[in-house]
C-alpha cells in the first residue's frame, strides 16, 4: 500500500497543467524548445497550485477501485526544483496518510511517507520512478514529470494543431519502453497524448488528456486517462477545485506538516 500510494502522486502532478507561451511564432521552434515549453505547461503552471483528485482504477475484468487525494505543489523555479504534498482521503485505510516529494533536477528526488496510525515518518527510496502510483495505471513519473535530459527528442511531425515528438531513452535498460511519442498542442503547449512502445516496438500504453479547461488563466488538464493495452485495464483521474498561485509557504513541505496537514490540504 505504501508503495501504491507513492505511485498515485505522480498522476496528480501531471494534472497540474499549464502554461502559456506565445503561440504565434514565425518560424518552427526547435524540438528542445518545444519539449521544454511542454514540460512547463504540464508541470509548472503558476508558482504553486492545489487540486482535488479523484482516481478510478478499472481492471481488465471491469472491477473498480477508487482513490481520492489532495495535491499541493510549489515550484522553486520554473523547470527546476519542485515540492509536492499529497494528502490521502480515500479509501479509508489510507486516509490521512501523506506522501511528500522534493523533486530535484540533478539528483534523485527526496520522498517521504507519513503513516498516522504509527506516527511514523518514513523515507522512501527514489529509484523506482516507473512503478505504479497507488496501484493505478499512472506511474510516479507521469505524476511529477520525466526529466527531459533522460531522453533524446525528435520532432517527427508538425501539423496545424500539434507537434509530434518522439522520445528515445538515453538509458533504455532503465525503462520498460523503447520509445514514446507525444502530441503537443500548438496553442497551449500541453502534451495531450503519449503513446508508449515496448521493446518489440508494439504499442502497450497510452496516456491522454481527456478534458482541458482554462483555470485561473492556465490551460489545465482536468481529466486524464491511462490505458494499459497489454493487461486491459485503465485509470481515469479527474481534477477539481483547482487553484493556482495560492501562496503556499515552503515550510508546508516539511516534516512538521506531515504530522499536521495544512489547511490547504483539507477539504
Amino acid at each position: 500500500m505504501k508503495k501504491a500510494i507513492i505511485t498515485t502522486t505522480i498522476t496528480a502532478c501531471s494534472l497540474f497543467a499549464l502554461l502559456v507561451t506565445s503561440p504565434v511564432m514565425a518560424a518552427e521552434p526547435d524540438v528542445e524548445e518545444i519539449v521544454s515549453k511542454a514540460n512547463l505547461a504540464a508541470y509548472y503552471a503558476g508558482d504553486d497550485g492545489k487540486a482535488e483528485v479523484n482516481m478510478t482504477i478499472t481492471d481488465s475484468q471491469g472491477r473498480e477501485r477508487n482513490r481520492e487525494f489532495i495535491i499541493l505543489r510549489k515550484d522553486k523555479e520554473d523547470g527546476g526544483q519542485q515540492f509536492f504534498y499529497v494528502y490521502f482521503k480515500r479509501p479509508s485505510d489510507v486516509s490521512k496518510m501523506v506522501y511528500m516529494v522534493h523533486k530535484h533536477m540533478n539528483k534523485d528526488d527526496d520522498r517521504w511517507m507519513y503513516l498516522p496510525a504509527l506516527d511514523l515518518v518514513k523515507r522512501i527510496a527514489a529509484s523506482d520512478k516507473r512503478t505504479s502510483f497507488v496501484g493505478s495505471d499512472f506511474l510516479y513519473e507521469d505524476v511529477s514529470g520525466r526529466n527531459l535530459s533522460e531522453d533524446n527528442h525528435k520532432l517527427v511531425e508538425s501539423n496545424d494543431t500539434h507537434y509530434v515528438v518522439k522520445n528515445i531513452p538515453k538509458k533504455p535498460e532503465d525503462v520498460e519502453f523503447s520509445s514514446y511519442t507525444v502530441q503537443i498542442d500548438k496553442k497551449t503547449f500541453l502534451p495531450v497524448k503519449a503513446v508508449y512502445l515496448d521493446k518489440n516496438g508494439k504499442e502497450y500504453r497510452i496516456v491522454e488528456a481527456i478534458k482541458v479547461e482554462e483555470v485561473d488563466g492556465f490551460p489545465t488538464v482536468t481529466e486524464s486517462k491511462v490505458t494499459d493495452l497489454e493487461k486491459g485495464g485503465h485509470t481515469v483521474s479527474k481534477f477539481s477545485n483547482i487553484k493556482y498561485n495560492i501562496g503556499l509557504k515552503e515550510d508546508i513541505f516539511t516534516e512538521r506538516y506531515l504530522r499536521r496537514p495544512p489547511r490547504e490540504a483539507r477539504r
Binding site: M1, K3, A4, T7, I57, D59, R65, S132, V134, G135, S136, G233
Partner: peptide, 11 residues
C-alpha cells in the same frame, strides 16, 4: 522483503 503484486492489491 516486500513484494507487491496484482496492481498492488497483494502484498
Amino acid at each position: 522483503l516486500t513484494k507487491l503484486l496484482m496492481q498492488q492489491t497483494l502484498t
